[in-house]
Design a protein around this nucleic acid. Structure first.
Lengths: 158, 158
DNA sequence: CGAGATATGTCAGGGTTCTGACATAGACGA
DNA sequence: TCGTCTATGTCAGAACCCTGACATATCTCG
């Protein structure tokens, strides 16, 4: 046994993973600056586009931030007229958010830019390897109990 | 052409990448709490172990934080007696840091725990796929100009 | 030799996110 | 029915990290 009880930075998957995540974050940050969106703000809009009616807590989990942080994001976007939320909850406490036409337009622009970044990121990989990379990363997340587990600051399910 | 101008969260490499990075961060955070180390602190110690004599700025780049943040980390670790730095620079302004015996012992313990996490993370992958995952992530970083490029907050080379 | 470029360490300030806590709303089981 | 548990939204406070700026130390080139 004895699978090296130590980590070599040069070949460590974890270290390389962090490096890639940082690089991606930086690239998205730069790309979103022209449209005046932060990464969490973009993530919020993108989530709402693909799954309309998500609540604050659900968006928080999907964007990997706390409810409190997402709450601030939602307020900011709402003030800018990019999304709407009912002032009162029809059921429970959750207030489902939805994109406005303005928000939809802005998202379209931002999403196109971000998609280009992702394409650039994986351009040197074969389509097969692109897919495997995504699959393997998902396996890694699951192995760490990432989505359905404990910390991070995500709660259970989406 | 026209490689989908939009991103699907379920199959997006970028989204999955972020998810995995967050999960890893959370797992490391939890694992390092017993030894009273934050992730940046651990990263600093690990870097110093593998490349003794690194300066503050070099450590900052290696740990993906700014010089200012790493400066605080170094001070904290120095106060705890885990590393030493010459009070005066023998050349230039850089003051090379080195682990103390205490720091080395604590790092050994922490490193073992972190290595276990990394192992758990990639356990479901074949050794071949583990290696390819690391290689592909490195390609992604390079494609984004991650290490030698522009933002993030890394400067040139290490 | 001296001006400019690069890199380092550090101080000050601000912003973003998190942790902790509380009240409310629905689900479930004794 | 009522207590318990879970989930949500929100307020307050603190911690962390970054941006901006400045002085210093080398190196390079005219």
């Amino acid at each position: 046994m004895a699978q090296e009880a130590r980590v070599d930075l040069e070949t460590s998957v974890g270290y390389t993973l962090k490096q890639a995540a940082i690089a991606l974050r930086g690239a998205m940050d730069a790309a979103l600056r022209p449209v005046n969106l932060s990464v969490p703000q973009y993530a919020c809009l993108e989530l709402l586009d693909q799954r309309p009616g998500l609540s604050n807590a659900e968006l928080a989990r999907g964007a990997f931030v706390t409810r409190q942080s997402m709450n601030l994001v939602l307020r900011g976007l709402q003030e800018r007229g990019l999304l709407t939320r009912p002032t009162t909850a029809s059921q429970g406490r959750a207030r489902p958010a939805e994109l406005t036409a303005t928000g939809q337009h802005l998202l379209n622009e931002a999403s196109r830019t971000v998609a280009q970044i992702e394409q650039r990121m994986i351009a040197s990989l074969t389509p097969q390897n692109q897919h495997r990379l995504q699959q393997d990363l998902a396996k890694c997340t699951e192995a760490l109990g990432g989505t359905t587990g404990s910390k991070a600051p995500n709660g259970p399910h989406l």
